[in-house]
Design a binder for these strands. Sequence first.
RNA 1: AGGGCCUUAGCUCAGUUGGUAGAGCGCCACCCUUACAAGGUGGAUGUCAUCGGUUCGACCCCGGUAGGCCCUACCA
Length: 893
Amino acid sequence: MSENLSDRYNPNDVEDRIYKYWEDQNYFAAEDQSTKRPYSVILPPPNVTGFLHMGHALDHTIQDVLVRWKRMQGFNAMWLPGSDHAGIATQAVVEKDLRKQGKDRLEMGREAFLDEVWKWKQTYGDRIYSQMKRLGDSVDWKRETFTLDAGVSKAVRKVFVHLYKKGWLYQGKKLVNWSPPLQSAISDLEVVHKDTKGSLYHLAYPVDGTDKTLIIATTRPETYLGDSAVCVHPDDERYQKLIGKTITLPVINRQIPIIADEYVDREFGTGALKVTPAHDFNDYELGKKHNLDFINILNVDGTLNENCGPWQGLKTQEARKKIVEEFEDKNIIVKIEPHQHAVGYCDRTGAIVEPFLSKQWFVKTKDLSTPARHVVENETIQFVPEQWTKTYLHWMNIIEDWCVSRQLWWGHRIPAWYCDDCDQVTVSEDDPSQCEGCGGKNIHQDEDVLDTWFSSGLWPFSTMGWPQDTEAQKTFYPTSVLVTGHDIIFFWVARMIMMGLEMKGDVPFRKVYIHGLIRDSQGRKMSKSLGNSIDPVEMIEEYGADALRFTLMSQMATGKDLKFSVQRLEGYRNFMNKIWNATRFSLSNMEGFKAPAEGTEATVSLSQLTTADQWLIYQTGLVEKEVNQYLEEMRFSDAANRIYSFTWHEFCDWYLEFSKPVLYGEDLKQKQVTQLVLAQTLNRIVRLLHPFAPFISEEIYQKLPIKGEACIVDHYPEYDKDKTWLGLGSEEASFEMELVKEVITAIRNIRGENKIKPGEKFDVWLTPKDDKSQKILGNNKSEIIRLATLKECSISERSSLKKCAVAPIRLGDSEVDVVIPLEGLVDLDKEVSRLKKLIEKQEKDIQKINGKLNNERFLANAPEDVVEADKQLLASITSKVDEMRQSLLRLSE
RNA sequence: AGGGCCUUAGCUCAGUUGGUAGAGCGCCACCCUUACAAGGUGGAUGUCAUCGGUUCGACCCCGGUAGGCCCUACCA
C-alpha cells in the first residue's frame, strides 16, 4: 500500500495527464437524451483571437465548479464550449499580419482576404482551447461551436429573415457612430465616452442684412461646413429680433436660417447653437424637427468631402487647425476657452467616433424589449446578485434601435440582395437567383456583415442545432445558468433574452450569475497598456491550476470586483501541498488495511470508534451539509473556505495528530478502525474539493484505498445521501473533543506565554468540577499528555495551588481547571502578566453583560433565551475570573 | 446630471432574518517534534468612515455628511 509520493505536490507532473485521462474516458460528455436531470451551461464564447486572461480564468472556474458539482450530483451536466469570430478584432489582427507582408486588404479583394482570415483561424483558433484545458474546463468538446459554422449561419439567416418579415429589421439612412479607421458603423455600446480636454471656440457669424454678428460656441469648428441652421431659445431676449433672419457661413458662403427651439440651453456658451444635423445626434433630431438640410461633410475614411471647399481631403483634426487659423485671420473667432467634454472613442481602434449619416440595417428593439423586460421583472430570469436587475431594466427602458450592419468582410454577410433593374430588396434564407420584385437576374448581395453580437444573441440555441428541432434543445434549453461579467449585460445578456424569447418562445437561461472584474493588487483594471495583466497560464505553470482556481473561488463572495494577489495564490498553493501531505501520511500508514467491499461502508460499529473518530465524522457531516448549501446559493467563497478550514484546521491539525498514537501503536484492531476513518474522510475531502481543485483531487482519489471509478464521476458528498457513514458520528463525542481541544490549547497557551520550550515536559493537574468532565478527561488522558507534551497528568484536585498557573475552562455546562505548578520551571512574573491581561479582558466583558442584565428594559423586552444566554455567559466568565484572581493572589504570596 | 456600489485588523476581504467583532496573508516569539519549514505552537492588532434617528440592544435597519469606485446620459 505504501506509495512513494514526493513531499511536495508538483502540479506539473499531474495536470496534463489527468486532463487527458478525463478526456479519454469521455467524462465531459453529456447525453442528448437521458434519464438524468439536465443541467446546462453555455460558455460565453471567447474571441478566436484571444488569449486566456484572468477574467476568463474566473469566469470559467465558476462555471466549471457548478458543472462539476452538478455532474457529481448525478445531473446530465452539459457545458458547451465555442469561440466567437469577433468580426472587428479578427479582421484587424489579420490585416496587420498582411500589412507586414506588404499586402493590403482592399487590393486583395474580399474573397482572397477572407481566405487569409480562415487560414489564420485554422492556425491560431485553437490557442485558447488549449489554455482552457490547462485550467481544467470540463467542457463537452464534441459540442464545440464556432460562430461562423454552417449551422450557426443558417440560424443567423433564419432570424434575419424572420425579423425582416415582421418589420422588426429595417434599412434606414440614419446618423450612426462611425469609426473612420474601420470605415464602418459601430453600435452605441462600442463607443466609450472619455472626458477629453478641448477648446470651446466662439465664432461670430455675420447676420445677413444687418451689421450685427451672432456669436455661437462650438467644440468642433470644422463642422460648420455642415451647418444648416443656427438655433436659439425662443424666449431668449437677446436674440428675439434675429429669429427668422439668415446668416451666411464664412468662406463657403452658404446661407442658413436662424431658428428657435426650446432644446437650446440659454446658459451654455452664448445661448446660440450651430446646428449640424448630419454630424451630431442632437442636431440630427433638431434637423428632422425643423426640416433642415442634412449636409454630409465626411468621406468614409473620415476626411472632408466635396462639400468642404478648400479643405476637401483633409482629416477632421487637420481641417480644424486650418479653419481656426483662417477664422482668426478673418476675426471670426472672438474667443477660445479651454473646455472639458466627453468625446466618443471607438472601443476597438481608440479613434474618435464621428457621427455619420449612412444607410444601415437596424433591429427595431421596441417590441423585442418588452417581453425581455417582463421575464426579468417577474423573475422568470433571476439575476445573481439581484442588484443587476436594476441595471438591466434601466437599459431596457432606454434602449434604442440596434444598428446591426458593419462595413467589414469577416462575419455573417447580410442576406439581402439588391436588384439592378428595380428598387426591390430581396431578403432570403437561401441565396436567391432572381429579384423578388421584377424577377430580374441582375441582383447582388449586400456587401456588409452583421454585428458580431447578432450571432452571439442566438448562441444558446444556435449551438444546439436550431433551427432544426433537436433533442439537445429539448433537453438543455433553457440553460440552467449564464455566468458572465457585468460588462456585457447589454451587449450580450439582453440580446440573448430578446432573441430567445422571440425565436424559441422561452428564456435562454433561468439564472444569470454576474461576477466582478479582476483587478490587480492595487485595484486597477488589468490591461495591456498598463502592463499589469497577470497571465493565468504563467500562474498555472508556477503554482498549479488548482491553486489558481481555489484562489479565485475563495474570493468570489459577492459578485464585486476582486483584486488578485500572488501572495494569496501562494497561500492556496500551500493548501494543496497540505492536502497532498496529509494523503502521504495517511497512505504510508495503511499497512494491513483492507478496504470494505463496495456499498458496505459501515464495517465498524460505534463501539469500536474512538471519540476523535466520532467527532471527525460528525464534523464531516456538517461540512457536507454546509458546502452544498453554499453552492446552491452560489456563495463560492463560503464553500471554498469551509472546505479549507475543515481540511486544514480540523482534519490535519487535530484528527491526524489524534490518529498517530493509534497508527504507531500495537492495537491492530484499533489501527484498522483509524485507517478506515482516514480512508473514508480523505475520500470525502477530495470529493468535496473536486469542483474547486479538480486535478489534485482526482490524483489523490486514484491513490486512495477506498474509491470508485473516478472522482469526477463519483457522487458529491451530500449529508442526506451519506447517512450510513455519517451515522457513525456523534454530537456528544464532538462536544467531548471540543473540551479536550480546549484543555490542550490552554496548556499550550500557558507554555507559550511563560516561554517554556516546546520540548520541555512538565506535570499538569486537571481538576474537573463535574462527573461528565471527569469522565471526558479520563477517556482522553493519554491524548492530552501527548499533544500538550506533558510529563504526567493527574485528573484530580491538587492539594496546594501555590505558585501554580491556573486556566479555568468553561464549555457548555462543563467546568475544568487546568493547573500547572510553575515552581522551578519559570519565573512567575510572566504568568502574573498573562493572568492580569486575561482578567482585564474578561472584566470588560463582564461589565458589558452586566450593563445589559441590569437594564430593566432589556429584561422586559429581549427574548427569554437571549437573556438566559447572557446570564449563563456572565456566570461562566465570573467563575473564570474568580479562579484567575485567586491564582494571581497565590502567585504573589 | 441621474443611478448603483463601497468605507470592518498593517493588507485583501467575510460577517444572510439586529443579541459579547471573524478569516487569509503579513507581523512578533519559540520550535527542523519521522505527513508537510509551501510546516508546527503560542501571541499582538479594530471608537466596524463620520453624524444623527429607530430599538432594551445597531457592523447590520432609516436619514444626513465626507472619501473612493462604477454605470448611464451628456450643454453645442
